[in-house]
């Protein structure tokens, strides 16, 4: 199989020493096995996520994304833009759609970009890494590379919001998307039969500004995973991962629970199943250690 190449938009949280650096580590390991080459967009900038809007307004926000697309067109012409972060994917894809549908907006955006000598066409595809896995490889091909199946581990596929709505993955339903469950199964693990908080919001950025309200929702997400027998949670989103992992102690104190549920990325599962080591799989980035995966990675 020939190497597959994509123009890569890593996003702020994936940088060294940032909150999802372990996501990036496992993505690199997974891509190594799958022979995927990620060509980082040179000098990319923040997408402003779903929170920059208030101060940023409309055109500046779109210009942020347009700069990334323009740089991608220059350095990686003809390549699809791939993001691993849900918010990066969403805001980039949204802005691209808006630019294509509104010629006035396109004109104004290019006027702004010209300040830095850039120009955007926005005609490339914007994809989430999960789409690349499902559409360009497919479950069978992904499964064929497994050397250490995740046997006997029950894993809750927590999809959350933005890797689901509004665009959807692989044409699946918004209420009950199956792709994470299918990926778990493909890696030899056991998806949950039913998980009623699969697409529940974790609060997103409001976990910072409205901690009480968000933690009440996070509690339900974790509790439901326990109720259905899960030993760990898997997610495709850095915000979901962070929110469901790091507040468990606060929640335990407030609600008198005993949560200690590891939350990993799909790419962590895949790296381990592909025989990558503890560090390569990003397992050293778990605040709540994923012991079952550690055992497998040591085998």
């Amino acid at each position: 199989m020939a190497k597959k190449e994509y123009s890569f938009y890593p996003g702020c949280s994936s940088q060294k020493g940032a909150s999802a650096s372990n996501y990036q580590t496992s993505v690199d390991a997974m891509c190594d096995t799958l022979d995927i080459q990620l060509n980082e967009i040179p000098d990319w900038n923040c997408c402003s996520a779903s929170i920059g809007y208030a101060e940023g307004g409309e055109l500046p926000r779109i210009a942020l994304t347009a700069r990334n697309l323009a740089l991608s067109e220059q350095a990686n012409p003809g390549q699809d833009v791939v993001a691993t972060c849900a918010a990066c994917w969403l805001s980039t894809r949204e802005s691209k759609d808006r630019l294509l549908e509104d010629s006035q907006l396109m004109k104004e955006t290019n006027e702004a970009l010209a300040q830095a000598g850039l120009k955007v066409q926005a005609n490339q595809k914007i994809r989430h890494m999960v789409e690349v896995l499902i559409e360009d490889f497919g479950y069978d091909e992904l499964g064929a590379k497994v050397t250490k199946p995740l046997e006997g581990i029950k894993i809750a596929g927590y999809v959350g919001c933005q890797t689901n709505r509004p665009f959807g993955i692989d044409g699946e339903s918004f209420e009950n998307p199956m792709y994470l469950d299918k990926l778990v199964e493909t890696m030899g693990g056991e998806p949950l039969e039913a998980y009623d908080k699969k697409v529940q919001c974790c609060g997103g950025a409001l976990a910072f500004s409205e901690p009480e309200k968000s933690q009440a929702m996070i509690k339900d997400i974790i509790e439901s995973a326990y109720d259905h027998g899960a030993e760990m949670i898997v997610t495709p989103c850095p915000v979901c991962q962070m929110n469901t992992e790091v507040y468990q102690e606060h929640i335990n104190k407030k609600y008198n629970t005993k949560f200690n549920m590891p939350v990993v990325y799909y790419s962590t599962l895949m790296s381990v199943a592909y025989g990558k080591g503890y560090k390569e799989s990003g397992l050293d980035g778990q605040i709540i250690r994923a012991k079952k995966l550690e055992e497998i990675s040591k085998r």
Binding site: D43, E58, A116
Partner: peptide, 17 residues
């Protein structure tokens, strides 16, 4: 690296808006 360029883009975008 080009934070200046980015700021110039944002400033212009704000002006247009």
């Amino acid at each position: 690296k080009d934070a200046k360029g980015l700021q110039a883009i944002l400033k212009k975008a704000r002006e247009i808006e």
